[in-house]
Design a protein around this nucleic acid. Structure first.
Lengths: 123, 123
DNA sequence: AATTTATGTTTACATGCGTAAACTATAGAA
DNA sequence: TTCTATAGTTTACGCATGTAAACATAAATT
C-alpha cells in the first residue's frame, strides 16, 4: 500500500535523521504542519502497518527507523507521474517545464553538466 | 478540488477528442479499465461538480467537453511532485532518473536538442 | 397506449486519509 | 503505595475515491 502525503512528511523527518522518537518527530513537524501528538502517532502506526518504518523499544518509548528508502519512494512517485502523464519518458517532462518557463538558469546549467557527464561515461 | 486518478483517465479521453458522450467514453475506457456504465457516469458527474468538464445537451444525451486543459492538469501534477520531492527544481529530478538508468538514448538526444534550442533562443 | 430501451440522477458502500480524542499501561514522584 | 506524567494503542469521524446498483425519465418500439 502506498505511503500517503501526510505519511511522507513523517518519512522525510526520518530520512533526514533516524532513529527518532515520536516526540522528536512531533517537535520537528508539528508546528509547521499544525499537527498534534495524536496525529503523528497515527501516522507512525500506519507507517508501521505498511512496513515503511520499524520501531525499536528504547526504555519506555520507541525509536522509529525507515524501512522504505527515500530513493525508492522518490522512484515510485516519479515513475508513477512519468507513466501517467508523459508516457514514461523523461524528455517530454523536461520539455513541459521548459515550455512553462520553469527551467531556471541553474537547472539548465546542471542539465548540461549532467548530459556531458553521460557522454563522458559512454564515449 | 483535485481531479483524481480515475477521473483523469476519463479526462484523457476527452483531451484526446471532445465533445464525447458518456457512451463513447465508456466504449473507450471501459474494457481497458474494467469499468461499467455506472462508474463512468459517476466519474463524469464528479468532474462536472469539479468544473473540470462541461456538458451540453445533444438530443437525449449530453456531450462532455473538458474545461480543465491537459496542460494545466499536467502542470499542477508535475509541480506538485517537483515541489514535494525535488525542492521545486527540475535538474535534480532528471538526475534522479539518470541515476536510476531511466534515461533512454532517445531521452538523452532530445534533452540535448532541447538545451541547444534554449541556447539559441537566448544567446 | 403500454412496454422496452437509453440516459441521466441519486444513493450506496467499502476503503483510505487527515485529523485527532479517548483509553491503557507503566515508570517515576510524592 | 498511590498518584501522575508519559508514551503507545484503540476508536472515531468527516470527506474523497473507486466502484457501482437503483431509480427516474423520456424516447422509441410494439
Amino acid at each position: 500500500m502506498a505511503v500517503s502525503e501526510a505519511e511522507a512528511i513523517v518519512m522525510e523527518v526520518l530520512w533526514h535523521a533516524a532513529p527518532r522518537s515520536a516526540e522528536e518527530i512531533l517537535a520537528e513537524v508539528g508546528p509547521a504542519q499544525g499537527w498534534r501528538e495524536g496525529t503523528v502517532k497515527s501516522l507512525l502506526n500506519r507507517l508501521l502497518k505498511k512496513k515503511a518504518v520499524k520501531a525499536e523499544k528504547e526504555g519506555r518509548r520507541y525509536l522509529y527507523t525507515p524501512l522504505l528508502s527515500r530513493d525508492k519512494y522518490v522512484s515510485q512517485e516519479s515513475k508513477g507521474l512519468l507513466d501517467r502523464l508523459f508516457d514514461g519518458r523523461v524528455a517530454p517532462l523536461v520539455a513541459h517545464f521548459s515550455e512553462q518557463r520553469k527551467l531556471s538558469k541553474k537547472d539548465i546549467a546542471e542539465l548540461k553538466k549532467l548530459l556531458k557527464e553521460l557522454d563522458d561515461e559512454q564515449p
